[in-house]
């Protein structure tokens, strides 16, 4: 452990990590936490993935359709899908994240009331779909309609906020690898969401994590589902393009 920390602290930490230096948050974890993520029978997030698999096959709504009715076998039809989100949604004229897409699908095609943000059902189904892309490189869509929203996400990433007057970049670009309290500051690549945080003792979304960070710098967090949070995710997934998806991850 001491060796690992020393190694991390010795790395150069100035500026945004070049593509070759990009590291997943899992690289900064204790070996015990990495082992928990690596083994499906130890990874508590697999309880949510198993729930999501059941949900995939359950008919719902007025039409009595399950996800599987249209999409068939998720292990084939959903392979690679999460790696391409957020994506442009014609219905709203804006980017939508994977959970948002699931809820759009529910409303339009089942039709059934959307799951609440951060509900166990929504996290489980999102985790199950994203799990189908585990190990695949993040592949941000080249859709030009996304560009202004990605740019907005980048601007939000650089903007100083809160009583501590910190931007995302001030920690995750300028000081990654250094200690903040007892934790190592990671590079903020959303490679493993939804993921199980030991602190949460539950699976949660990237939006939950982003809101945590905002509370951490004493800023008013955006509401779940706010367009700003989706724009931030769009920017972060572009920044992490090519890195492997780890869903469902485990983090401290």
């Amino acid at each position: 452990m001491a060796f690992v920390l020393a190694l991390v602290l010795a790395l150069p930490c100035a500026g945004e990590a070049a593509a070759a230096d990009r590291r997943s948050g899992s690289d900064f974890m204790a070996p015990e936490t990495r082992a928990m993520q690596a083994d499906d029978m130890s990874n508590p997030a697999m309880l949510w993935v198993a729930d999501g698999e059941q949900s995939w096959h359950r008919p719902e709504g007025a039409a009595g359709r399950a996800c599987a009715t249209c999409h068939g076998d998720a292990t084939r039809s959903m392979r690679g899908v999460a790696a391409r989100y957020p994506a442009f949604a014609e219905a709203t004229g804006r980017p939508v994240d994977l959970s948002g897409r699931i809820n759009l699908c529910r409303r339009t095609h089942q039709p059934a009331p959307p799951f609440a943000s951060e509900s166990r059902e929504l996290l489980a189904l999102t985790a199950y779909v994203a799990y189908q892309s585990r190990g695949m490189p993040i592949a941000p869509p080249q859709d030009p309609r996304l560009d202004p929203f990605r740019a907005n996400g980048g601007a939000l990433y650089e903007r100083r906020i809160g009583q501590l007057d910190l931007s995302c970049a001030a920690c995750h670009d300028a000081r990654w690898g250094q200690q903040l309290g007892g934790s190592v500051i990671p590079q903020a690549h959303p490679t493993a969401y939804p993921l199980y945080r030991l602190e949460w003792q539950s699976v949660g979304s990237l939006q939950r994590r982003l809101r945590n960070c905002m509370v951490g710098v004493r800023a008013e967090p955006y509401a779940f589902g706010a367009p700003e949070l989706v724009d931030l995710e769009l920017f972060l997934m572009g920044r992490a393009g090519g890195m492997a998806l780890e869903t469902p991850g485990v983090r401290p």
Binding site: M41, S42, M46, L47, A50, D51, Q54, A124
Partner: peptide, 27 residues
Amino acid sequence: MSRALVSVPTTARRGEVIEIRAMAAHL
């Protein structure tokens, strides 16, 4: 909702010591 995951080898030799793992969804 599935509330538990268990891991047991599907096959084993008689007399072999096997590892069993069990995890349940609970707050």
